[in-house]
């Protein structure tokens, strides 16, 4: 995957003449990814794409959990992690939503939205409000984390996660890739996080659903204080 990415971001020579400025610009600022690429990609790699001037990721696969093109739980959760971190970094993702069980959809509606042109029926129809930055995120402070959930219009749920067990569990789950197993997690904290819709668990893998909000986009007063 690393080779694939680096070849995509360095293979630019001569493209202005071949493709024209608009297309060349778009190509030089976007990267195409397979499900396998996403599974292998780390957060640090995503961040470095951003600093190389990449602003768009194009996902080559439908994001489905059912049907003939169903992804494995591992692939599906890795892709949700990628969408979550892309939202955090301000990267746009061209992606299509396939068949996803009803109970999973609310975990996706704060993420950079899917392309609806090719699959209009499969837009996140259950989305309670149009996508905007700052609907479901978390922030890290000294010895605590705060999760803000504003996915339902007019509601502003704030969860403060502190105390060693809860915070360690949360930060382990928030660490980039889907977390495998629960042996190193505090059971009680895990259950609370799941009940609050902060954790999505499929099989043995779990992820933190909200993205981390490290530096809000301009103008930052568009996102209310927490």
């Amino acid at each position: 995957m690393t080779n694939n990415l680096s070849s995509q971001t360095t293979r630019k020579n001569g493209i202005l003449d071949r493709l024209g400025h608009a297309r060349a610009l778009e190509l030089s600022q976007s990267v195409r990814l397979t499900a396998a690429d996403v599974v292998a990609m780390t957060f640090a790699q995503m961040k470095s794409l951003r600093t190389q001037g990449i602003w768009k990721l194009i996902l080559d696969t439908d994001v489905s959990l059912d049907g003939e093109n169903a992804l494995s739980n591992a692939e599906f959760l890795a892709i949700i992690c990628m969408l979550r971190d892309a939202t955090r970094l301000g990267l746009r993702v061209d992606w299509r939503l396939g068949d996803v069980p009803e109970h999973v959809l609310p975990h996706l509606c704060h993420l950079t939205p899917p392309d609806t042109s090719s699959s209009p029926d499969n837009d996140l129809l259950s989305r309670p409000q149009p996508f905007s930055f700052g609907q479901f995120f978390w922030k890290k402070g000294p010895d605590f984390a705060i999760v803000i959930d504003r996915r339902i219009p007019g509601k502003n749920h704030k969860f403060v996660i502190s105390g060693e067990d809860a915070l360690t569990t949360f930060l382990r789950l928030a660490d980039g890739r889907p977390h495998i197993g629960t042996a190193d997690l505090d059971r009680e904290s895990m259950e609370t996080l799941e009940r609050a819709g902060i954790v999505l668990r499929l099989g043995t893998r779990s992820i933190i659903v909200p993205y981390r909000l490290s530096h809000p986009p301009v103008p930052s007063y568009a996102i209310e204080n927490i």
Binding site: Q29, R50, G53, W55, T87, L89, G90, L91, R92, T112, S132, F133, P217, V218
Partner: peptide, 10 residues
């Protein structure tokens, strides 16, 4: 000089 990706996304 740099792309404002978040604004582009928004």
């Amino acid at each position: 000089l740099e792309t404002r990706t978040q604004k582009r996304m928004a």
